[in-house]
């Protein structure tokens, strides 16, 4: 009675098709890494001084601040939103931390306590913009644009045009000192990366963010508290912006709103070039690391190649267009917004 259970020719083809597709997907997730290696090889050959220990350290230092910023944005993008508040908020944190420590303008000197206080302020503001987005159901893009403009206004107001030069010995040491040859700022970035890695892979929060990004309906079905998780994402973003603001002030030795400029869009580019999809659910912290290096390598190499400043932006734009075109899934009825 037990009819021979056979799978038809079509069933076989279906299984092969699926295997081919998952292999393709595995290759696609490696695409950013391959692009990074290809870029390094090309630039080592062409750019003089690229492939050297000195320049390697240089890359590591320059990738520090963009990396921390993109780590902050990774979870936001994994959830399918975007956030531009870092431009104003980062500038504000940078300016305010300079005013709080021993500086050339006022006699306030909180020393090391300034850092946690300032990061708390950054988290507070980011939580507020998260509240507006989640509870008020406003598009995160526009909310963060408003918050960014308010905060950069306060930043400029805080030092009234004369940036406060940092005198605090701790900050000057942090700017120049290094440990095992790697400057402190880069260590901060490495530590932030490790925390982000743990957050993503070792905590419930990480899996919940991935679930929400993949399919919010399934996440609700599994019983995940979606709003609370989204809120925590904005807390993490606030923390990263706070760190970036402090690092910016340390690096330039003074507090000015310029610290926040040109932070957000390169960070979002790094996250996407690294392989995290803008509609959420794919990619992760390691992808962002690769993305951040791709962007930094391009900037560094263009300077080493002595490319004329006028066309540098165009070359950067073209390379990123190519990199994303290669690492983005293609399909006839795939909906890409």
């Amino acid at each position: 009675m037990d009819k021979q259970v056979h799978t038809s020719r079509v069933g076989e083809e279906f299984a092969q098709e699926m295997k081919k597709q998952s292999q393709k997907e595995r290759f696609m997730s490696l695409a950013p890494l391959i692009i990074l290696l290809v870029l390094i090889v090309i630039f080592s050959v062409t750019a003089q001084g690229f492939f050297s220990i000195n320049n390697f350290y240089n890359l590591l230092n320059q990738a520090a601040i963009p990396l921390v910023m993109s780590l902050g944005l990774t979870f936001v993008i994994l959830m399918g939103s975007t956030d531009l508040s870092a431009e104003g908020l980062g500038g504000f944190i940078g300016s305010v931390v300079a005013l709080m420590v021993l500086n050339s303008k006022n006699d306030m000197n909180l020393g090391a306590f300034a850092i946690p206080l300032v990061v708390l302020i950054s988290i507070g503001v980011s939580m507020l913009s998260g509240l507006l987005h989640i509870k008020g159901k406003l598009p995160s893009f526009m909310v963060s644009y408003g918050v960014s403009s308010i905060m950069s206004g306060f930043a400029v107001l805080s030092y009234r045009g004369v940036p406060a030069r940092i005198r605090d010995p701790l900050f000057t040491v942090m700017a120049q000192g290094n440990f095992l040859g790697i400057p402190y700022l880069t260590w901060i970035a490495i530590v932030t990366f490790v925390i982000a890695y743990i957050l993503q892979n070792r905590t419930r929060f990480g899996s919940y963010v991935m679930a929400i990004g993949d399919n919010e309906a399934i996440a609700k079905n599994i019983g995940i508290n979606i709003e609370w998780t989204k809120f925590k994402v904005f807390v993490w973003l606030g923390l990263c912006i706070g760190i970036v603001g402090v690092m910016g002030a340390v690096r330039v030795g003074q507090g000015d709103v310029g610290i926040g400029s040109d932070l957000v869009f390169p960070a979002i580019t790094s996250v996407v070039v690294g392989g995290t999809s803008l509609s959420g659910g794919k990619g992760g912290v390691v992808h962002t690391l690769i993305g951040a290096f791709i962007v930094t390598v391009i900037n560094n190499a263009l300077v080493l190649l002595g490319v004329s400043p006028y066309i540098q932006q165009a070359v950067q734009g073209l390379i990123i267009l190519g990199a994303v075109a290669l690492s983005v899934p293609h399909g006839k009825n795939l909906i890409v917004k």
């Binding site: 803008l278 165009a314 267009l321 994303v324 890409v336 917004k337």
Partner: peptide, 17 residues
């Protein structure tokens, strides 16, 4: 099929140059 955010961000740099 590049997400419009990144596509237009890159062309922004190109037209600026």
């Amino acid at each position: 099929q590049i997400p419009s955010f990144i596509a237009t961000l890159s062309t922004q740099a190109i037209w600026q140059s």
